[in-house]
Design a protein around this nucleic acid. Structure first.
Ligand SMILES: [Mn+2]
Ligand SMILES: [Mn+2]
Ligand SMILES: [Mn+2]
Ligand SMILES: [Mn+2]
Lengths: 215, 215
DNA sequence: AATTAAATTTAGACAAAGCTAAAAATTATA
DNA sequence: TATAATTTTTAGCTTTGTCTAAATTTAATT
């Protein structure tokens, strides 16, 4: 499988996890910053290899084979992110681009040994689940902070937006995975929040609250 | 720089280290298991980028820029091999092919952090030197076992042939980097050797002796 | 020196993956 | 329902890196 094929599978996998319905050509093109015509070409190719179910004009979905392949790429991506953060001391906003490269390294033995070396983690540095060697995922119950109400208390367990900018903002506010967050006030006008993180009280916009997963 | 360009540079670098003279198109083709015409095409491209000095029909050599680039790829290859052996517990005959992939990962920060994580090793699992971030190499004095004479004693510090088959043979004979080797007898008829490795006495062919570096 | 052999380059073709522009199908709207 | 807007596909072209076959250059041998 080529890098490009792997990237398409991964993108379809990620789009599926949010919408559930069949994925449109344009949605893939937009996410991958490529042209719809290129997507069509690749969908034919993936369909030929039985990795996706593709009907002209109707969108695509992953076959079981394609889904497993996608999960293995996600597994590699997230394990490498763990390695970079936990062993090489990278910060969580620096690892994604490097993992985008490392996820394409082909060696089952390597990834399984890496998994063991890291102590078989179930989540990556952004709180996202790591599929095991069989593609199984441990789902963790979590809600967006924006769905919380006044006086509720939770633990930050993940981020929805994993952009470097957002992660650096969280660092600045001293919000990390494991931080306790208490809703002090919810402003009805703009849906912003007054929250307590550890000992500090801060105000965050609704956009921020909509990208933080809490349990 | 593409994977392919990197592989050509690396090949030219390795061929240079044995012959010193300009490298021929055919030598590159043979080493890379490709066709001479493909090599010619790539040499033009590398020459255009000032990575090699290339004169039609006359062979190539690396420019300073090309040599440094090649060294950085070799650096990555050998550091990853160290990682695989020392941290992930691979054996020395399993790591080359995986390192062939990992050597193309682009991130200076990654490779320098990996270097630190490994304790800044100067040699890879096969006894080959690891260039530092500036491309400097610590040369170690070493001779082929085949050049040794009766009664001489030395330490195994490297292998010339790094094929899996040869490395597995050495494992079987319990010869590893650091093993003490004493020449008991040199058979003049076929240039085979009777040697002592640790407590054991074994006979090795000249071909074996010509692929073991001793200090 | 002339001829032959070997090495190297050129010419032309192909597959992968991308693009633009035009055609076709689907969806939305009047 | 007919028309317009949007989405998707097709057709044709480009780049990268490879190949085969033919042409050219260099090296080796009479
Ligand atoms: Mn990531
Ligand atoms: Mn992640
Ligand atoms: Mn190697
Ligand atoms: Mn090595």
């Amino acid at each position: 499988m080529t890098f490009s094929e792997e990237n398409y599978l991964k993108t379809i996998y990620h789009l599926t996890s949010v919408s559930d319905a069949d994925i449109s050509t344009n949605a893939i093109a937009e996410k991958m910053e490529t042209k719809a015509s290129s997507v069509t070409d690749m969908l034919k190719k993936l369909s030929e290899k039985d990795l996706v179910n593709y009907i002209k004009y109707q969108g695509v979905s992953l076959t079981d084979k394609g889904k497993l392949a996608a999960k293995m790429i996600v597994r590699k991506h997230r394990l490498w992110e763990c390695f970079l953060v936990e062993k090489l001391d990278f910060s969580w906003d620096e690892v994604h681009d490097i993992a985008e490269q490392l996820e394409h390294i082909k060696s089952e033995k390597l990834i399984n040994k890496l998994d063991d070396f890291l102590g078989n983690p179930t989540e990556d540095p952004h709180g996202d689940p790591i599929p095991d060697a069989q593609g199984r995922i441990i789902k963790v119950e979590k809600q967006l902070l924006s769905e919380f109400e006044k006086n509720q208390i939770g633990i930050c367990v993940g981020v929805k937006d994993t952009s470097s900018d957002f992660l650096k903002y969280l660092d600045k506010q001293e919000i990390a995975l494991g931080s306790q967050i208490e809703i002090i006030e919810k402003e009805s006008f703009d849906s912003s929040f007054r929250i307590r993180v550890g000992t500090k009280e801060i105000t965050i916009s609704n956009k921020i609250a909509s990208n933080l997963y809490i349990k």
